[in-house]
Amino acid sequence: MQRVNMIMAESPGLITICLLGYLLSAECTVFLDHENANKILNRPKRYNSGKLEEFVQGNLERECMEEKCSFEEAREVFENTERTTEFWKQYVDGDQCESNPCLNGGSCKDDINSYECWCPFGFEGKNCELDVTCNIKNGRCEQFCKNSADNKVVCSCTEGYRLAENQKSCEPAVPFPCGRVSVSQTSKLTRAETVFPDVDYVNSTEAETILDNITQSTQSFNDFTRVVGGEDAKPGQFPWQVVLNGKVDAFCGGSIVNEKWIVTAAHCVETGVKITVVAGEHNIEETEHTEQKRNVIRIIPHHNYNAAINKYNHDIALLELDEPLVLNSYVTPICIADKEYTNIFLKFGSGYVSGWGRVFHKGRSALVLQYLRVPLVDRATCLRSTKFTIYNNMFCAGFHEGGRDSCQGDSGGPHVTEVEGTSFLTGIISWGEECAMKGKYGIYTKVSRYVNWIKEKTKLT
Rank of each mutant, 00 (worst) to 15 (best):
V377W: 03
V56A: 12
T209P: 12
D405M: 11
C407Y: 05
G421Q: 09
V199F: 12
M6G: 13
C155P: 00
N113S: 06
H302G: 02
E53M: 07
T386S: 14
H282D: 04
P239D: 00
A164F: 03
Y161A: 01
Q237A: 08
I210F: 09
I17T: 04
D33N: 07
C155G: 00
G442H: 15
E281R: 11
N59I: 04
A337N: 00
P175S: 10
H267I: 02
S169A: 12
V257N: 01
V331E: 00
I300R: 03
T133F: 04
Q90Y: 11
L211K: 10
G412F: 07
E171M: 11
S365Y: 12
Y444A: 02
G427C: 00
T287N: 13
N113T: 06
L19V: 07
N343E: 15
E54L: 05
G272Q: 07
L376E: 02
G272V: 09
E285I: 11
A26G: 12
C134S: 02
K45N: 15
F251T: 07
V56P: 15
N151Y: 12
I336G: 00
Y441E: 00
E142D: 09
V326N: 09
V278D: 03
V174Y: 05
P44S: 10
K39V: 06
V153W: 04
A149L: 09
R373S: 12
I214V: 12
S184W: 08
L319R: 00
K51H: 15
Q57F: 06
G246C: 03
G280S: 02
V296A: 05
V202A: 13
A173Q: 07
Y312H: 10
V277Y: 01
T190G: 11
W240R: 02
F121A: 12
R379E: 07
G432P: 14
F395L: 00
S385F: 14
R3W: 10
P172G: 07
G439E: 07
S114F: 05
C178R: 01
C335L: 00
F395T: 02
D198S: 13
R43P: 14
G355N: 09
V181H: 09
E340N: 11
T81I: 07
S385C: 09
K455M: 07
A397C: 03
I7A: 13
C102D: 00
V451C: 08
E98D: 08
S255A: 05
D378M: 04
P44L: 11
Y312N: 08
V331Q: 01
L244W: 00
A149M: 10
S220V: 12
I300G: 00
M437H: 08
G106V: 01
C117G: 00
E286R: 10
R379I: 14
D223S: 11
R449V: 13
R62Y: 03
A380Y: 14
K152D: 06
I428W: 04
K109N: 08
H314W: 07
N42L: 08
F176Y: 11
C117K: 01
Q143A: 00
K457P: 02
G355S: 07
T225R: 09
E10Q: 07
N304H: 09
K152Y: 08
Y201Q: 13
G122C: 00
L369W: 07
F87M: 15
A207H: 12
D322E: 06
Q216D: 10
